[in-house]
Design a protein around this nucleic acid. Structure first.
Lengths: 153, 153
DNA sequence: CACCCATACCGAAGGTCGTTCGGCCTGCTG
DNA sequence: CAGCAGGCCGAACGACCTTCGGTATGGGTG
């Protein structure tokens, strides 16, 4: 994982459809060498998958909210319960007064209310505190930064 | 934007490297027709771009936190100030006691503190409240769901 | 210091896939 | 009923992915 790998990751994040010839030229490598590096990045799991970025509004998810979930018991094994709700895009165990933080997208605020109802139904959940997003400034992928945990890789 | 388009979006989210022949077969179309549909989805902006999903740990961003930013003034024009911080992955204007909610990834908690310091330096910011993630259950793309705001499309 | 092995790169070849095109069919519209 | 627009199919051309042999470089070892 050197600076060339990071450059490859950054360029593929911007556009994963470009050819390996273009990609290699951008980092000073041949197409074959660039392909080999990307293949290894996939193999190691540094690249999890190639995907598309979908406009939420285009698929009818105009409402975005973050929900702090309070609980009366240990929530460490509740991942499947949250994953069962398709409107829940992220779920994290957090440090602080709440126990779990989830990101939710729905078409309407009525649907958001319904999601909150289903979150309440999860075992151990004692309360929720929803924060509705009024305007999204930006959402972007993380930029491969310097140093990092190269460690023994 | 019918059910076939939604199926195409869902399949491309899972794997954007598959061939148009495979894609078309999965939804009952020829390769050419599938290609034409995907082309139009890009044209309309429903597909924003094709990208890769990078493992945060692989690029040295092991610490994830959400930060509630309080302000003493209107923050509606502060998008560039937050975008200037590369560790800030998302920034949203929210309804509630705080003004802006941002998502931050760093390599260490020391770097997180430094990001908080730089957020404080943004004009109008009067306080922050960071919530550190202990464990991420999951992060996934939104699933193209039913009905939605098809409207006049 | 010489040797050897592993790693990474280049350049070319073959096979697959993306992209485009003409033709057909269905469903509207005037 | 005629005309038209939109969507799909199937084929063909060209570009690209993928692999392979050959070569150079750096590190470890006797």
């Amino acid at each position: 994982m050197d600076h060339i790998d990071r450059a490859l990751l950054a360029r593929l994040q911007q556009d994963a459809t470009q050819s390996y010839a273009t990609l290699g030229q951008a980092v000073g490598l041949s197409a074959g060498a660039a392909h080999e590096r990307v293949r290894k990045l996939r193999e190691r799991g540094a690249i999890r998958r190639t995907t598309i970025e979908v406009d939420p509004a285009a698929v009818g998810s105009a409402v975005l909210a973050y929900v702090m979930v309070e609980s009366s018991s240990w929530m460490g094994d509740s991942a499947p319960a949250f994953a069962a709700l398709p409107e829940v895009l992220e779920a994290h165990v957090i440090a602080g007064s709440a126990s779990v933080l989830v990101k939710v997208r729905t078409a309407t605020t009525e649907q958001l209310q319904d999601v909150l109802r289903r979150i309440y139904a999860i075992d151990g959940v004692s309360g929720t505190q929803a924060t509705v997003v009024l305007e999204t400034f930006f959402e972007r992928p993380l930029s491969p930064q310097e140093s990092g945990a190269d460690g023994h890789l």
